[in-house]
Design a protein around this nucleic acid. Structure first.
Lengths: 226, 226
DNA sequence: TAATTGTTCTTCGTATACACTTTGTCCGGA
DNA sequence: TCCGGACAAAGTGTATACGAAGAACAATTA
């Protein structure tokens, strides 16, 4: 028992750099740090109450993930998503989420489907309560869940990262549309439950087309071409 | 002029961490560091002749890219690709490269097509010379070029990273098959030149199916299920 | 043999130092 | 007023040292 506890505590340990990275990501996604804003190491270190080293390590990963741009000897700035990248992101996402839906349909167990249905229920409820933040959150959870059910770690991690970026760019618009997309979600889960890969893929594509159209519309003027 | 020169020199500056990252990647891909091998910071610092800081930063990025696994308070080990991930990687790659081929077909200029044809020529020549290493290199270049022509940075960067992993896992087998795949490459470039997205997508899928089958076969016994 | 206790190796984070770039400011001259 | 260069400030890039804490492994003891 003591060993179990130790193992758990050891694995639980979250290095500061990871905490900083998570905080940095959410700060950027939430718009606390705006695109183009300069992120000096000292400033971040102070903001997060740590020394420069964890900050630097977090920054390198954030750069690899596309949240910041680092110019040698000039430091890091928050990346600026352009309207061009919106189209590009959705083009990739379409393929990836379609694949995820197909794999999920082919591999989902009864328990998997049940967990998806539970999310749908919670979503319906939250929609009725007009709790948009919660709806958006459940939306994310549902998509992430499908990725997980697909059982393909590569797909999962790539799509997850893309998803974060989508949320970043459409931070505002996403919450508004969430209730509308719920009907599409039901179609998607139905298709996954049916085990029909083609149908699931089609449902995912329909959903993404709608989402992309709405998001695009919402982004008009938000981020123009630069 | 003086300013241009400075800008260039400034931009040229390659931080040690990037050099370390590049060296680490190639060392892993080339098999100099074997899967499961432990990578202590001190050792890497000594291997590359730098201090621990650049090494740490490079390690974090290598982790994000999937080349190493970092266990908190235990350090980094070279990641161990399992046979399961092979299938998974190809499943994602199929979708991505198909999309790239379609976009390339839709957007390629005459100059783009010419550069692809030039690569094909060089490839044919290298094949005749039995220069397998060169063939493999041209193979990579061709794929990367198509990604570039697709004009979708997300697609490009994601597929590029996947491609590196494929090369890693099939380091040995890839070179052998390269000559065979050349015919498929010609089909692919023809399709791109035709501007027919569907046809390009089909050609890319055919190529990947063949590559995946060959790679899988070649990997038998190399990396079994673990 | 099994459990416990040390010991050692490493990572993790902090702190410090310093060279070198980039950037910004100020000042004098045209 | 405007330009150009000297100068200062800010910030990154890299190295180094140090202490705390965890993990792995060996030695010791019951």
């Amino acid at each position: 028992m003591a060993e179990d506890l130790r193992d758990k505590l050891g694995a639980q340990h979250l290095p500061l750099r990871d905490q900083v990275l998570a905080a940095l990501r959410t700060a950027i996604i939430d718009g606390d740090y705006l695109p183009g804003e300069r992120l000096t190491e000292d400033r971040l270190a102070e903001d997060f109450g740590v020394s420069r080293n964890p900050v630097r390590e977090a920054l390198r990963v954030a750069e690899a993930e596309g949240f910041v741009v680092i110019l040698p000897r000039r430091g890091a700035v928050v990346a600026s998503p352009s309207s061009g990248t919106i189209t590009d992101m959705f083009a990739v996402r379409e393929r990836l989420e379609a694949l995820a839906a197909r794999l999920a349909a082919e591999r989902a167990t009864a328990a998997d489907v049940a967990s998806l249905r539970a999310l749908l229920d919670q979503g319906r409820e939250a929609t009725q309560r007009q709790d948009l933040a919660r709806v958006a959150e459940l939306n994310s959870t549902l998509h992430l869940r499908i990725l997980q059910i697909s059982g393909n770690p590569w797909l999962s991690s790539i799509a997850k990262s893309l998803y974060l970026h989508v949320q970043w760019v459409f931070r505002l618009g996403a919450a508004e549309r969430a209730p509308h997309s719920w009907a599409e979600h039901i179609q998607l889960v139905d298709a996954i439950e049916s085990g029909d890969g083609d149908r699931a893929e089609r449902a995912a594509l329909d959903h993404l087309d709608a989402a992309s159209a709405a998001a695009y519309e919402n982004a008009e003027g938000g981020y123009g071409a630069r």
